[in-house]
Simulated assay, not measured.
Amino acid sequence: MRVEVDSDRCVGHGLCEATAPDVFEVGDGGYVIIDDEAASSCAESDLRTAVNNCPSAALRAIE
């Protein structure tokens, strides 16, 4: 599974970063940056939690 971000929807809440800090980082511009390499070794449950808890629905899980 991988995760994509819709930068038009992302408002930088940082809940994804709090869930999986090795994968997600809210950059200086206020938008999330995804480390695909770290995501590949992250627990799928943590990625799904980040996607499901995004208040602006900016994250999407790709199977």
Rank of each mutant, 00 (worst) to 15 (best):
M1H: 09
P21N: 08
A57W: 09
E63W: 03
E63C: 03
I33Y: 10
D6S: 05
C16M: 06
E4K: 15
V32A: 11
R48F: 05
R2N: 06
I34G: 01
A43G: 11
R9T: 07
I33N: 15
N53R: 15
F24C: 03
N52P: 02
A38I: 08
R9L: 14
G14V: 07
C10V: 07
C54S: 05
F24T: 01
A43V: 01
A38V: 09
D28F: 06
D8L: 11
V23S: 01
V23D: 04
D35L: 03
S40K: 07
F24M: 03
M1K: 08
F24I: 03
I34S: 02
I34F: 00
A18E: 08
G12C: 01
R48E: 14
D46F: 10
Y31N: 13
D35E: 04
G27E: 11
I34E: 02
A50G: 05
R60W: 08
V5E: 00
D36L: 08
I34L: 03
A50M: 03
A18F: 13
H13S: 12
C10F: 01
R2V: 08
D6Y: 08
E17P: 04
R2G: 00
L59C: 03
G29H: 10
C10M: 07
S56N: 09
D46C: 09
D35M: 05
V51Q: 04
G30D: 05
F24L: 05
E37F: 09
A43T: 05
Y31L: 15
V26P: 06
V32D: 06
R48S: 08
C54H: 02
S45R: 15
P21E: 07
A57G: 14
S41A: 10
S56I: 00
G27C: 04
N53C: 13
Y31H: 12
N52Y: 05
R2D: 14
V11S: 14
E4T: 06
A20R: 02
V11I: 12
E37H: 12
A50Q: 00
P55N: 05
C42A: 11
D22W: 08
D8R: 14
V32H: 02
V23T: 03
L47Y: 04
G29I: 10
S40E: 12
D6V: 04
A39D: 08
H13Y: 12
R9E: 13
L15T: 15
L15N: 13
C42I: 05
D28R: 12
R60Y: 14
D28H: 13
C42G: 06
I62E: 12
M1V: 11
I62V: 15
E17C: 00
R60V: 15
A50F: 02
S40W: 07
I33R: 13
V51Y: 03
S41K: 15
P21R: 07
D22N: 14
G30F: 02
V51A: 02
E63V: 08
D22E: 14
D36G: 06
T49R: 13
L15K: 13
S45P: 01
D8Q: 12
A61W: 14
Y31T: 11
T49E: 12
V3Q: 02
A43Q: 10
D36E: 12
G12S: 04
G14S: 12
E44M: 06
S40P: 01
D8S: 12
S40T: 13
H13A: 09
L47R: 02
A18Y: 06
A61D: 04
V23M: 06
